[in-house]
């Protein structure tokens, strides 16, 4: 009995959290990266249709949905592999950091891809998206504004640190929320403090 109580009251260190955060974060960032590349090259190699449903647009919706459940999966992993009891704050930390890992790893992988495999990927992607915007049925001034803003946006995100700094908060918060759902579903119910 004492042993059980002791286990339940155990305070976890980061080394207990990292396997769940790291494994789930790495898997989801790989999915994000590979999915992004797959749809990215589909976009590059397709004729501009002017349709909203270009491969890139489809991929961003699907990838966003997949990425957002990483926090929930990380909490599930923690409850299976480390401890079935998990406090609210611990779940929140796992969720936010899982989101952060996804952003950091996928940004690094993208940079490596451009650096080592296909240095013209970003340019080809931009050209393809501009061609698709040009074919869209909307006023020319709107198209010009959108194209200028998009080109400016892609040029301004060249810095690795900037991409990470600006990408982590929102992805982290969304995964924090899904991690709380994970705590509600998977964690052992007990009278916990924070």
């Amino acid at each position: 009995m004492d042993e059980i109580t002791e286990k339940k009251d155990q305070i976890y260190s980061f080394s207990d959290y990292w396997p769940s955060i790291g494994i789930v974060g790495a898997i989801f960032s790989l999915i994000t990266f590979v999915g992004g590349l797959f749809f990215g090259y589909q976009q590059i190699n397709s004729e501009p249709t002017g349709s909203f449903f270009s491969p890139f647009m489809i991929s961003s919706g699907v990838i966003c949905l997949i990425t957002s459940i990483a926090g929930l999966i990380a909490v599930w992993h923690f409850t299976k592999e480390v401890s079935p009891s998990l406090k609210l704050g611990q779940g929140a930390v796992i969720g936010f950091l899982t989101g952060a890992v996804i952003v950091v790893v996928s940004v690094l992988l993208s940079e490596l891809w451009v650096l080592l495999i296909d240095p013209e990927y970003n340019e080809k992607m931009l050209e393809s998206m501009i061609a698709n915007f040009e074919a869209m049925d909307m006023p020319q001034s709107t198209k010009d504004d959108m194209i200028d803003a998009m080109a400016e946006s892609m040029e301004s995100q060249q810095s690795l640190l900037r991409q990470i700094f600006i990408g982590v908060p929102i992805t982290g918060i969304i995964n924090l929320i899904t991690a709380l759902i994970g705590v509600a579903i998977f964690a052992e119910k007990k009278n916990d403090d924070f």
Binding site: M57, S68, A149, S153, P169, T171
Partner: peptide, 16 residues
């Protein structure tokens, strides 16, 4: 515009 603005950059990972 929001695309190209810092608010747009914040959400570009999660929204088209």
């Amino acid at each position: 515009q929001s695309i190209g603005h810092w608010t747009g950059a914040l959400f570009q990972n999660v929204c088209h």
